[in-house]
């Protein structure tokens, strides 16, 4: 029976006409045609599709350039008074006009951008670091320690931010570092919660277990696998922290705690313009416009990133 089969097989093999040569391209079954792309290349491609987010990003970049280089190239400084041209309307010499002391509003807005943006980005950065480490630690190790640490987070969260601010100002005085400290005391809490939730769900994933079986240490598993895989939500939360910090700073300056005069912040400028709102409403417009557009842009960027980094939200 088997011999017969073998013979038949030989017959078939001998008859070349029955066979067709395989195309070279068909032999390569493991070939992948799609261009190799990293996660961030892919995200950038998706981000660019979002018009509002792109406009926001361009606006923030312009703002950053103006904040860093603007005051250097301006003929005026933020505290230079010119009593001969007080409350001037916008002109070629003073694009945004001058305030009640004859200070150039344009340079003050750019100087305010320095303070607002640095407070915004610095506090977001500090919150990011503390939140990721604290939340990652809690989520990864879990258990009783996690329970205690998360109750601590809830206590911090339950005290109003304004209370921290006033306390910090009392102790350290009104300056940019006190503002930063006050924002960061309770700001990292949201990030910590977010990262903890992510890490908790990811640590049961098989790739985390695989790393453990390979002999990876806890810090390697936590930071190289779990945190890296939560990078989407982490970036989105960070971008949303920036505008909220800018808003807090402006609000504090407006009500008179925070950056002290003559330093210019968008909040102090709005506060000073308030007295002249009936006569010189234009002076109020500039700082408010700067705050609004910056916060709006950052929120658009945050939403754009949220969509670009989360594959489930892609259309």
């Amino acid at each position: 029976m088997e011999n017969q089969f073998d013979k038949k097989l030989q017959d078939i093999e001998a008859d070349d006409a029955l066979f067709e040569k395989l195309e070279d391209s068909e032999k390569d079954s493991e070939f992948i045609a799609v261009e190799a792309k990293t996660y961030f290349q892919d995200a950038w491609k998706n981000f660019k599709k979002n018009k509002l987010a792109t406009i926001g990003l361009i606006f923030i970049c312009l703002m950053l350039l103006l904040a860093v280089f603007g005051p250097i190239f301006s003929p005026y400084t933020y505290d230079q008074q010119d009593l001969t041209s007080r409350n001037a309307l916008p002109s070629l010499q003073h694009p945004f006009g001058t305030d009640k002391f004859g200070r150039d509003i344009f340079v003050r807005v750019m100087y305010g951008a320095r303070i607002s943006l640095s407070v915004g980005f610095a506090s977001a950065f500090i919150n990011l670091i503390i939140g990721v480490v604290y939340g990652g630690f809690c989520g990864y190790f879990g258990g009783k320690l996690d329970m205690v640490l998360m109750r601590l987070v809830e206590i911090i969260y339950s005290v109003p931010t304004l209370l921290y601010v006033i306390l910090v100002m009392l102790i350290f005085g009104s300056n940019i570092f006190s503002v930063l400290l006050a924002i960061c005391i309770s700001g990292w809490v949201g990030m910590a919660r977010q990262v903890r939730a992510q890490v908790m769900s990811l640590k049961e994933q098989e790739y985390a277990l695989a790393a453990k079986v390979m002999g990876a240490g806890d810090s390697r598993i936590l930071f190289k696998h779990l945190v890296v895989n939560s990078i989407g939500p982490i970036i989105v939360t960070t971008t949303h922290m920036v505008p909220s910090a800018i808003f807090t700073e402006s609000f504090l300056a407006f009500v008179g705690i925070g950056i002290s005069i003559p330093q210019a912040s968008w909040g102090t400028m709005a506060s000073e313009a308030r007295g002249l709102i009936m006569n010189q409403p234009i002076q109020m417009v500039w700082p408010v416009l700067a705050i609004c557009l910056t916060i709006l842009s950052l929120n658009f960027i945050g939403d754009g990133l949220n969509e670009a980094l989360d594959p489930r939200k892609r259309v």
Partner: peptide, 23 residues
């Protein structure tokens, strides 16, 4: 001590979609 033994004994997981780090 455990780490040196990890080399000798390895594990292939069930779900090939979950056992490789996507990043």
């Amino acid at each position: 001590e455990l780490k040196s033994f990890r080399k000798d004994i390895q594990y292939i997981f069930q779900d090939p979609y979950a056992s490789l780090d996507p990043r």
